[in-house]
Design a protein around this nucleic acid. Sequence first.
DNA 1: GGCACTTTGTCCATAGACTGGACGAAGTCG
DNA 2: CGACTTCGTCCAGTCTATGGACAAAGTGCC
Lengths: 387, 387
Amino acid sequence: MALPTKATHQQTRVHNERLVVRTLYDLGPISRAEVARLTGLTRTTVSDVVATLLGDGVVREIGRGPSSGGKAPILLQVDDDARLVVGLDLGEEHFAGSLVNLRGEIRRSVELAVDGRDGDAALALVFELLDQLLDGSAAPLLGIGIGTPGLVDSRTGTIRRAVNLDWRDLPLGEIVAERYDVPVNVANDSQAAALAEYTYAGGDRVPNLIAIRVGRGVGAGLILRGALFQGDGSGAGEIGHVVVDADGALCRCGRTGCLETIAGMRAVEAQAAAATGQPTDLAAIRAAIDGGEPWAVAIADDAGSALGRAIAGLIGALDIQRIVLLGPVTDLGAPWLAAVRREAGSRALALLADDVDIAVARPTTNVVIRGASALLVARELGLSLVR
Amino acid sequence: MALPTKATHQQTRVHNERLVVRTLYDLGPISRAEVARLTGLTRTTVSDVVATLLGDGVVREIGRGPSSGGKAPILLQVDDDARLVVGLDLGEEHFAGSLVNLRGEIRRSVELAVDGRDGDAALALVFELLDQLLDGSAAPLLGIGIGTPGLVDSRTGTIRRAVNLDWRDLPLGEIVAERYDVPVNVANDSQAAALAEYTYAGGDRVPNLIAIRVGRGVGAGLILRGALFQGDGSGAGEIGHVVVDADGALCRCGRTGCLETIAGMRAVEAQAAAATGQPTDLAAIRAAIDGGEPWAVAIADDAGSALGRAIAGLIGALDIQRIVLLGPVTDLGAPWLAAVRREAGSRALALLADDVDIAVARPTTNVVIRGASALLVARELGLSLVR
DNA sequence: GGCACTTTGTCCATAGACTGGACGAAGTCG
DNA sequence: CGACTTCGTCCAGTCTATGGACAAAGTGCC
């Protein structure tokens, strides 16, 4: 059994520094005195820590706040652009990347077409993307976060399997870290989404959260006790291939009746095509739902129900109250979401299900990029997201 | 959002003290110098900490070891009986308890029949059990660990719901802690079992583990990243009430078709009664299975299959490779276990399912008692099992 | 046996970091 | 305008880890 590390004064300091930064980040702009009250640290210590942070440029004084009967407080704020991170989204058709600030706001973006490249050629494309992004960037770079489909071991930064790029056990994190000399974190796309939801939740952050991405595939990212949970083989959250109907349709994974074959984007589109007699994409289905077409509503209900049943299983197993849905299929709108909630609520222990909040994420430019960047932003804030 | 706590010097000290104790506990008898090398602490600090521990009686000097070319080291060892903890198992028919030493060895046991008591009378019985156990005990008591059926919030020690004892939102931990003036930890029986499997696994300890207890109810205890995971509402692992067949039998929770109504002990016995036309308990079913009776094998297969499907969901969601089964229903033996493995293996992503090890726990004297005690032993060693 | 060398455990001065009280600065309120 | 409050800083004090020095107690070689 590996022994944990000893405790030193430096660690105490680092811990408290991060505590102060995080407090300012989440609840800012606030004064030193307020930070002291919130954290339990003395005003002396907070002042000392803040002096360091001001010196590093991570925090700024932005003037006086309203007095509450005494001297007016000097308000402090994290300088969102004091540090930058890179977030990459290695998608199936495009490699996209952005420079992102501490608040997850995108400052510059680059996108390159994959054009069927794989293996080493795909790796070279990653380098090109990074070079373009970093060229002439101003603020110090905290690190690089990478989101990719497939099975990823975030602790080592290894891509265990990414079918379309023909990568297998590729130590991508290590390779990139060496080339650019900054920390690198790698996660799959559902996990990245969960990290984004968690990190950028602001004061509304909760320690346990499930983000479910419903697109071509169905996958979940689990944040448990404030950190990404990946399980023993990096496969935690791979709920898309749990068999929900043994007599169901053949799945690309080789089994039949996986959740993906009922709730996934392709399944939904195939159902719609069968109903209309012609190829029908999600947008068309949504339009039909809005137009009140019964077949479209029924399809949304079916897909949502299947997902809801899977979520009920998650609730029973983990008792997590915040569940965020995202991905293309969420476009199916209210009837779909209602079906998800109905099934999730009625198939788990009532005492647990009643407190669950299932919602669709605010659509943002690029969740994967933001999530990938979150890995590094969180590190600066002392939220060790990967353990 | 609850802010984490600040770091202080005292915490540094506590951390290092525990680090030293754990090193001695796991690798004992060794010298101060060796501890310093293993932990990275200076010899000065280790000496200082050890002085405290000697004063507390937790550690003993047991003479000189062999020299390796210099002054012979003074060997140190944790005194296994320097502290005791109490583990309680509040079962449906009996309340059992034991005094346990730091190594998990049972020193004294007491068992009292419940005889239908509930509410305050049941609470009084807990007190009587504890009084008998503690009467005349020598070594200082570290604390009391309690395992009980039902929904338990381990952080606060509150029993949220225990149907058969008619307890609801009972702050059992607080009550007992106040009466005996020691720390108290409360966990439900599945969680206690998981903790026992984890803590006393010896060199075979893995950070992620699921223990599933199949008796009258079906419940799981989750050890994730080396700590008990309870979810947002203390209900993590309550898989017995996930609906697996919406058209199934009525469950005591009010819904229909919960896992418990198919895989639980009562369901199995009811099936058997229907097949034989007379009341048939688990032992009788087991005998019938051993005798090759088709109806009995079919019942075992049905019950095992349902549990296996639920486990497949867990594997997909969490990718945990060590799953331990325990409780009365495991007596159904090989056909049941085979069904569990078959369904679990064929209904989760093959890449994940292939590495999973599903086994029945070695029957031990009392898993719940040992698990409950583990909570406190681990605390002394600085393995925070509950977070 | 004597000497050089190693290892152990302790002592002591020092440094890093938090604490708590005191104090001036800068507000509010009557 | 004076009493009171709040903010931020300063300073002395305390806790705890650190690193070097040193005596004690071994081993090994000549």
